[in-house]
Write a protein that binds this DNA or RNA. Structure first.
Lengths: 222, 222
DNA sequence: CGCGTTTTTGAAGACCTTCAAACTGAGTGG
DNA sequence: CCACTCAGTTTGAAGGTCTTCAAAAACGCG
């Protein structure tokens, strides 16, 4: 219980709990557990049963699906403040994907009982959960649209424009291989797509940092 | 109000309202409206604002995303008893996709107010909505997995195995073009994939009806 | 500086797509 | 009852985009 204050502070600040009654947050915080993770650590595997909800405090997490052989497909990249694993928990299902820490970080884990109880008692929290799921649906739909209807460089352009941009500059926060997989591309193809955008004078690339030279034309590509 | 009894009967029988308090169903039914649709009719377009929830009573509906040019991508095919358009409604968003009737049918439309109110008042209904969204998430994830990790014939095999099968036989309930698009394939590719499964002795094809000759090997393909 | 990892580059190949045309089959009208 | 038509499907050949394989280059870290 020594860690409760810290957990509570985190929970209070997170998107998932924005505007939620203090009492509700307190209860969730009381039930939750801090889970430190180290780089590369697998948080859950496909087939594990979902007994709770994860919220990421610090670090980054990769959600992915592995096939029988080597290749994996990254379905989402999670940053601080975001939650994951909701769908399987809501359905009392087995996870259909794997979650893995990309770096050392801290998770907050809230057991299903507490989530269910809170959702039942506090309509506001219930609506928040629903919103989170709906956002995921739209995000997944967007990914499907990208893979099916758009070329490699169009997908890369779209990705860049959705990153946090400061003074026309952005920074790839993940391995290029990981980003490539999220976009449904091989690392080689991703690299070539970046080259292409560079040659068209739309961006300048220096390692992981990318300068957006022509936002308008970049948008029209995506 | 003359149509209320019929609407109520439909609502009571639907998955989305299974196990929901009678009072709740009654209220939703009272607020809902029947909307007949004819073949090819567009129910909503991308960009329309979502002011309610659709439930399909009879007929079939195609959810799709169009690109600037010709090609469209089918993201889901809806049958009687299923609901759609939840995500955009929950988020008070614009629709990110289009819904179109594939044949004459009947929709039930429930205004957002009524849904919100019911979700707030009846935790059971709220949980149902959430379940529905969670299922959609998993389904979309599965589609992403298919497109990214599996070949054309693997996807077709998977699709066939997820259809209602009676006595080893199933029937394609939609245009092959529509199914192809849902699988992220061109009609020609879909046709060739079916041929390939046929040549491997896994299925027999006669128009829209398909005989599954070797379910086990078919499963191992998918 | 040296080593392992990540990224890039090049060339060859695979799978799906595109384009074009033939085929099928259900609905229509003679 | 049999053409006829038209949408839907299948088939063939050519073409593209992405992938694969291989190797070099760049990067990061001890």
């Amino acid at each position: 219980m020594a860690n409760q204050p810290a957990v509570h502070d985190w929970i209070s600040g997170l998107v998932l709990f924005e505007g939620i009654a203090k009492e509700c947050r307190d209860r969730l915080a009381a039930a939750s557990r801090e889970v430190p993770v180290i780089r590369q650590e697998v948080i859950y595997r496909r087939g594990d049963s979902a007994t709770g909800l994860f919220v990421l405090a610090t670090g980054h997490v990769k959600l992915s699906i592995q096939s029988d052989k080597g290749p994996e497909k990254v379905i989402d990249l999670i940053g601080p403040g975001q939650s994951f694993g909701e769908a399987a928990m809501v359905l009392s299902h087995l996870y259909q994907h794997q979650a893995q820490a990309l770096e050392d970080g801290l998770l907050i884990w809230i057991p299903k009982d507490a989530v269910d109880k809170a959702a039942e008692t506090y309509a506001g929290f219930s609506r928040r959960l629903m919103t989170s799921l709906a956002l995921q649906c739209e995000s997944l739909q967007h990914d499907i649209e990208l893979v099916n209807l758009h070329s490699a460089s169009e997908r890369v352009a779209d990705y860049l424009l959705h990153q946090p941009i400061e003074e026309g500059k952005t920074r790839l926060r993940f391995d290029k291989r990981v980003i490539a997989s999220k976009l449904g591309l091989k690392p080689e193809t991703f690299s070539r797509a970046l080259q292409q955008l560079k040659m068209q004078g739309l961006i300048a690339v220096k390692g992981a940092s990318i300068l957006i030279l022509d936002p308008n034309r970049l948008r029209s590509v995506a």
